[in-house]
Design a protein around this nucleic acid. Structure first.
Length: 447
RNA sequence: GACCCUAUGGUCUAGCGGUUAGGACACCUCCCUUUCACGGAGGUAGCCCGGGUUCGAGUCCCGGUAGGGUCGCCA
């Protein structure tokens, strides 16, 4: 029988990076085994659920490229879905829970107390066979010794997570439950419930948690905790997936960069690590840089234009060849697209704001005659291209008896406002003679 | 507090009884480049502690310690 796995988030906030990785591992296992990946929205907590959170889950998974074989098509709980085990929103499955409760009640496996319905939990230790951690014997805790029974349905009629989760897994034919290790202890409850329903529980695989750099659970305060950060900061989903794969799983051969297709081929549960991993934004950034550099031009342009538009720079106002030439000088230099406006925004602005620190060093009186002379040399460059500009600058430096850097830095600052950036000669060529002359002239006035 | 999981450089990890303990990120130095980045060459830094088992232990066992998780009418 082909595995059926699921990602079952509750839409109570943003899509957590740990949740995204849980989804990824489930997806990988399904794709590796030829099984089915189900998306189920656990929206039983009406008070805390939000439509935005539902949408964030769907769009986040789509952004990562984690397609589901069964589950909602839209964020509308009553809307269409794919798969024959729906509905895939728990809010639409109330009758199932009701029927299951009655079944337990009728067999005295559950009972009512204080208006709530409670499950008669076994007092015996329960063995949890885990595909990642190994066999785990889970006895009762001291609190549970006093009263091991637990609530299935609250007094307000709402069924609790442990119950609906098990009922749905059972009815959706889930064969493997891959989830965070924070659920390991609770699995005893789930196993007991499955048995009460007379079925064997699914196989479990509890994956380690993602911790923040301080070593505690990632929370919204931590950088990178929300998947939306990566969409907003112009990350490439392939890079995020790649990094997430490396947290808690290893290809075992020192490979760091792997495509999702490669991971699908190599991924399996026994290779999953058993210890938690701290989130390292720097390493993710490194991978992001790697992927960004290798992006096909068309995709690079698309993402770049989008990032510029986000800060109000409309590249449509410029000639398409100019835009492409400008972006070409930035490719391979930036890591995330959110850096682009600061890095290459000068191509699309009229007003250049000089970096104050750099201006203090470059825009000094002794440089004024030098830059004036260089500007004259640039004026004669024909055609106005990188090679000629480089030659002109070097010749001028040599005439003046100064190093090229003495001229390079003030010009860069005058034209871009930044102390560093794309290759100077190429950037000048792209911007063009007229604007370069204007910008140098304007800067000269501040020396 | 009880119970469960875990423990290799700062971080992610390889290792499965005998290795000069390997790789990656980060950091440092140098080269390339008169910017930055990329690339190249080096470098600093690690088996939590204590007992066993064994000729031999990062590797197996036990005990500590530390970190994480769970014990809800939250999910």
């Amino acid at each position: 029988m082909k595995p059926r796995v699921r990602f079952a988030p509750s839409p109570t906030g943003y899509l957590h990076i740990g949740g995204a990785r849980t989804a990824l591992f489930n997806w990988l296992y399904a794709r590796h085994t030829g099984g089915t990946f189900v998306l189920r929205i656990e929206d039983t907590d009406a008070a805390r659920n939000t439509q935005e959170a539902v949408d964030a889950i769907l769009s986040g998974l789509r952004w990562l490229g984690l397609d589901w074989d069964e589950g909602p098509i839209s964020g509308d709980a009553t809307g269409p879905s794919k798969g024959d085990r729906g509905p895939y929103f728990q809010s639409q499955r109330k009758e199932n829970y009701q029927r299951r409760v009655e079944a337990l009640l009728s067999r005295d496996l559950a009972y009512e107390k204080d208006g709530a319905i409670r499950f008669r939990m076994t007092r015996e230790p329960i063995l949890i066979p885990d595909l990642v951690v190994g066999d785990v014997m889970r006895p009762l805790t001291d609190r549970e010794e006093i009263d091991p029974d637990w609530v299935l349905v609250r007094s307000d009629g709402q069924p609790v997570f442990h119950f609906v989760n098990v009922v749905d897994d059972l009815e959706m034919g889930i064969t493997h439950v891959i989830r965070g290790e924070d659920h390991l202890s609770n699995t005893a409850k789930h196993i007991a419930l499955f048995r009460a329903f007379g079925v064997e529980p699914p196989k479990y695989g509890h994956i380690p948690l993602i911790l923040n750099p301080e070593g505690s659970k990632m929370s919204k305060r931590d950088r990178g905790a929300s998947l939306s950060t990566y969409l907003e900061e112009g990350f490439i989903p392939e890079a995020v997936n790649n990094y997430l794969c490396l947290l808690g799983w290893s290809p075992k051969d020192n490979t760091e960069k792997l495509s999702l297709a490669e991971v699908v081929e190599r991924f399996d549960l026994p290779q999953i690590l058993r210890h938690n991993a701290k989130f390292d934004f720097e390493k993710l950034l490194w991978l992001q840089g790697e992927y960004c550099r290798e992006l096909p031009d068309d995709r690079f342009y698309e993402l770049a234009v989008r990032a510029l538009a986000k800060v109000g720079i409309d590249t449509n106002k410029f000639n398409v060849n100019y835009v492409k030439a400008a972006l070409d000088t930035c490719k391979g230099k930036i890591k995330t697209f959110s850096e682009l406006p600061a890095y290459g925004g000068f191509y699309f602005k009229d007003e250049i704001v000089y970096d104050p620190e750099a201006a203090k060093k470059s825009f000094v009186p002794e440089n004024k005659p030098r830059i004036e002379k260089l500007r004259e040399a640039f004026a004669k460059a024909d055609p106005f291209n990188a090679a000629n500009l480089e030659a002109a600058l070097k010749a001028t430096a040599s005439e003046l008896g100064v190093k090229a850097g003495v001229l390079v830095h003030p010009v860069r600052l005058a034209v871009t406002g930044n102390p560093s950036g794309p290759s100077l000669y190429h950037l000048l060529e792209v911007i063009g003679k007229e604007k370069v002359m204007d910008r140098i002239k304007r800067a000269l006035a501040t020396f």
